[in-house]
């Protein structure tokens, strides 16, 4: 038991305390806030939830000590991954059989909170419309840009960068350049939504 406690204490030291997390947020630069805002909006694209709500849920968990940040991890990376895992869990829970949810009730508390928050909007025609329209807008945005569209199609199928490069016979430099062009164009999707 003593050994276990000692191990546990040692492990705790690997993570930022709540006070340190707050200090970390207070010292965030403008660029770090932009990265968080942008990625939160990206992850909510096509979902009936705002990036601000997703960020709020995740930051609350961090400030309550329910999500812990490893010391070596930059805080914006920590928050981003927390957001990504919440949305991932949310999508998986929505896909799964209700019976399966009762067998694994504790897979993601945050995803459940998101489900509760969106309860009245899940499975509605509006939700379907948002998802389909957003995907349509994305395809229109890249219409005529065959290379970008091909990369996006592979990304939609969740292929890894190395696989995509190999399939398209792109050098790392060519691939990085194509990704940069996609990212800049993708940003316009957010601008369109805000208008």
């Amino acid at each position: 038991m003593e050994h276990k406690l000692a191990l546990s204490d040692k492990n705790l030291e690997d993570f930022l305390t709540i006070s340190e997390i707050k200090v970390g947020f207070d010292a965030f630069t403008e660029a770090q806030w932009i990265k968080l805002g942008k990625t939160a909006n990206n992850l909510c694209r096509g979902l009936p939830i705002e990036g601000a709500d997703l960020l709020h849920i995740v930051i609350c968990r961090a400030l309550e000590g329910r999500r812990r940040c490893r010391r070596e991890l930059p805080m914006e990376v920590f928050i981003y991954h927390a957001m990504e895992s919440v949305v991932d869990a949310f999508i998986k829970r929505r896909k799964s059989d209700p019976l399966e949810n009762t067998i694994h009730p504790l897979d993601s508390e945050d995803a459940i909170e998101l489900m509760d928050m969106l309860d009245s909007r899940i499975g509605t025609p509006e939700e379907e419309m948002i998802a389909n329209q957003t995907l349509q807008a994305l395809k229109q945005l890249f219409e005529g840009d065959e290379r970008s569209m091909e990369i996006l199609t592979y990304q939609m199928d969740n292929l890894q960068p190395a696989e995509i490069q190999k399939l398209m016979e792109l050098t790392p430099v060519q691939y990085a350049s194509a990704l940069k062009a996609i990212r800049r164009k993708y940003d316009k999707l957010g601008l369109q939504e805000s208008l």
């Binding site: 990265k35 942008k38 990625t39 990206n42 992850l43 694209r45 096509g46 979902l47 981003y80 990504e84 949305v87 991932d88 999508i91 929505r94 998802a131 389909n132 957003t134 995907l135 994305l138 996006l152 990304q155 939609m156 199928d157 969740n158 990704l179 940069k180 996609i182 990212r183 993708y186």
Partner: peptide, 16 residues
């Protein structure tokens, strides 16, 4: 559609 958008969002966000 939701899954495809999420996969693209992840790829773009990793760059950001």
């Amino acid at each position: 559609s939701i899954e495809q958008l999420f996969n693209i969002a992840k790829a773009v966000s990793h760059q950001v």
